[in-house]
Write a protein that binds this DNA or RNA. Sequence first.
DNA 1: TGTTGTGAATCTCTTCACAGCT
DNA 2: AGCTGTGAAGAGATTCACAACA
Lengths: 194, 194
Amino acid sequence: MRSREITHVYSHQLAAAARVKASQVRRDIMSLGIEGSPVRGYHCEELIASIREVLDNPEGERVALVGLGNLGRAIMTYFAGRRPKLRIVAAFDVDPAKVDRVYHGVRCHSDAELPAVIREQNIRVGIITVPATVAQEVADRLVAAGLRGILNLAPRPLSVPEGVYIESLDVTAALEKVAYFSRQEGAREETPLD
Amino acid sequence: MRSREITHVYSHQLAAAARVKASQVRRDIMSLGIEGSPVRGYHCEELIASIREVLDNPEGERVALVGLGNLGRAIMTYFAGRRPKLRIVAAFDVDPAKVDRVYHGVRCHSDAELPAVIREQNIRVGIITVPATVAQEVADRLVAAGLRGILNLAPRPLSVPEGVYIESLDVTAALEKVAYFSRQEGAREETPLD
DNA sequence: TGTTGTGAATCTCTTCACAGCT
DNA sequence: AGCTGTGAAGAGATTCACAACA
């Protein structure tokens, strides 16, 4: 909206874009402490600034990626340069053919270097894109090295100590879910509209 | 457990493996209509058979993948042969260099062939791994060709008509979430344990 | 003792509905 | 008329807690 030189926006417009209900948008914005005007709606710049303040670490977040298989490289490609606040600054793989190669400006380290690199680079967030069989082991090593948050893309639930945040995305499970619901006739839609 | 020749399992064992509470496991199993014995627990074979009956289409599900970038190829690799019930049987890309090449036994078709291939191969589930800018357009074309379910991996919410099931996985958003929660001190753990 | 099956309680998120304002 | 802010209700999902049983 900023790029279109629109200064104000109504909750129902944001709701339509995000495929949620307007009341949800209003409640979420409320929690930011922002007030809109019933006449003009919400001020875009104010929203952007406030959301940024809540979500972004001003110094940005340094991220490590473990596992440079297809999926790991896909994620490297995706984040390369795109999100200045979320920078993948180190990668790891056990394959000697990958170690010391540079992917999208990021050097691939060997597994053995993991603890040292995480500590030296002061990395606090990690992405796991290794095979399911070694995912827990990698998570344990990341946590031991000091990580505070993990995004797990291996199709296996992981355990981490309290104080470490973990989020898992399981593409396999998601596809199973789609296959299941698409077979139920009159499949319900996921996105409630206003 | 089957491979370890274990015939029975308690709800708390399944709960530990899935990182959920035992009461949750019991309620879920209840909904399958399966009864366990307080002495031996649940019969593994019975559970496997029953879950399969609910979740799996006996004929399997034929899946199309649109977008053979890094992420699309990662998913092709992952599913290649691994899930007999979820078979990616067609792929699409706009890049002429990819069209007619074969990836993991699956021929890449041009964008123009999409409607015909979807219909001829009787495909009902699709995976979208194209750039966000064209994701909605691809979804529209897939739906027009007769798909009933879509797994969207582009970081953009999509609209589909009622009757079509859509599931979106947004890796970017998930990483933002991890970065956010890992900065909150005493970050809560995601997985409640018993 | 230890487990299942389940009614009831709890928790959390979402939505309704409407007063208040312009 | 049309929007925001929000108390209250609603809808689900999760968990508790305990009877029943071996």
